[in-house]
Amino acid sequence: MRVGYYPGCSLTGTSREFDESVRSVARALEIDLAEVPEWNCCGSSPAHMIDTTMSIALPANVLLKAKRAGLAEVLTPCAACYSRLLMGKHEIETKPATRAQVERVLGCPPGSLDELPKVLNVIEFLAQIPETIAAKVTSKFEHTVACYYGCLLVRPPKVTRFDRTEDPVEMDKLVALVGGKTIDWSFKTECCGASFSISRTSVVGRLSSKIMQDATRRHAEAIVVSCPMCHSNLDLRRREINRRMEKPTLIPVLFITQVIGLALGLSEKRLGLKRHFVPVKLPAKTLPAQVVS
């Protein structure tokens, strides 16, 4: 099985472990990730915030390259990239004037932006192959975790058309598939502060601490995410968060692909678990046995 792959900037930098775990899991599941050649940044929130044209042109360029490389689907693990790619595609498909403008910016002939590839987030992608995953589970992930989806996977529902908007369940299903338990909690899609990680750390502290609070109160052993921004806010900004918590917490934040990777028996190294700021320490009795890679 072959699928297009767009890691995006975060996955080459601050969230390398997400990239590593996606690739490792893909290899274990015998999925060929065809990286979009010469891909560029999706523009992320800054383009969205202050440069509307580029916020559509940059993702359009990525999708155009994927299309030219013959890719019908593009797997985009980063939730922010996923959102930008989807929104860019949506704008191009629904607004002819925008499409023409973007064609000029890209310097591509009219019609090039027809039938751009489908954009898939990692949950969406893995949910398509439950049997394949289940067949390869070697050590069940026997932990109780909180699945945290964040904003951009589910919103706005008219564009993403993914899962239940206010109470998504697809990630929970994946965790259950590899033997884990998930808590039913109230903050699955509450915002963590996203791109304010650097410029308004206090906002991130306030929002993320509420999320951590609910998860720990309901006895989650870890938080599972699918977004580099959510991850860095909950992981990297833990000091900021703990300052606002009744009781500081050290539960780790895992990417969904790391959870699945553990269940598939992949090594901590290959899953990049060491790269986290909050050490990944799950109750020992249920930690999977080390497998030499």
Partner: peptide, 19 residues
């Protein structure tokens, strides 16, 4: 500072294609 962050980010993309 927020504007600066956004501008720095876009500037980075413009120069390097990626951030």
């Amino acid at each position: 500072d927020i504007v600066a962050f956004h501008k720095a980010f876009l500037h980075s993309i413009e120069r390097s294609g990626r951030v």
